[in-house]
């Protein structure tokens, strides 16, 4: 092959639409937050494991966990876990509605996105209000 010849261009392949193609929308943000809350819960399950192992070992191991979860950092993690759990739970139900073939049109999917967002926050506040009330 002559050295002056340029390398052949790779053929233009189809790309899936992404953040550089679509403008920012609520449903797009909800999709990203669903994944982020999922990863958060993935890491947060460590807290549940720690709690169960501590309770299964002895009183001093349980006291270490108890001290951590009652600290400001522990409470913030627990608050984040509660919100992520409810947000992800409602997001999952939203996906079931879509799987069944409903709620895919423009107004419905916006309501579902707003409902998930508000519902996750409201359920978190309710559970934490119950938690502080019975404490």
């Amino acid at each position: 092959m002559a050295s002056t010849q340029t390398a052949p261009k790779p053929p233009a392949r189809p790309l899936s639409p992404h953040l550089g193609i679509y403008r920012f929308t609520l449903t797009m943000a909800m999709s990203i937050v669903h994944r982020i809350t999922g990863v958060g819960l993935y890491l947060g399950v460590m807290m549940l494991t720690w709690f169960l192992l501590a309770a299964s070992l002895d009183a001093s191991a349980f006291a270490v966990f108890s001290g951590f979860i009652q600290s400001i950092l522990g409470r913030l993690i627990l608050l984040g876990f509660t919100w992520a759990l409810f947000h992800h739970l409602l997001g999952g139900i939203r996906h079931f509605i879509w799987d069944a073939g409903y709620g895919l049109d423009a107004p419905e999917r916006e309501w579902l996105a707003q409902g998930t967002l508000i519902g996750g926050v409201v359920l978190t506040l309710i559970v934490w209000a119950i938690g502080y009330a019975i404490r």
């Binding site: 009183a59 006291a63 108890s66 739970l89 139900i93 996906h95 559970v127 938690g131 019975i134």
Partner: peptide, 29 residues
């Protein structure tokens, strides 16, 4: 999807149980 469906009642039960454990000490838990 199957695990999602199972986790809907299981997470609600888990939150319920967590609230009931909130006040308990080592022996209570």
């Amino acid at each position: 999807r199957v695990t999602s469906a199972a986790l809907v009642p299981l997470s609600i039960g888990f939150v319920w149980l967590s609230l009931s454990l909130l006040n308990k000490d080592y022996n209570g838990v």
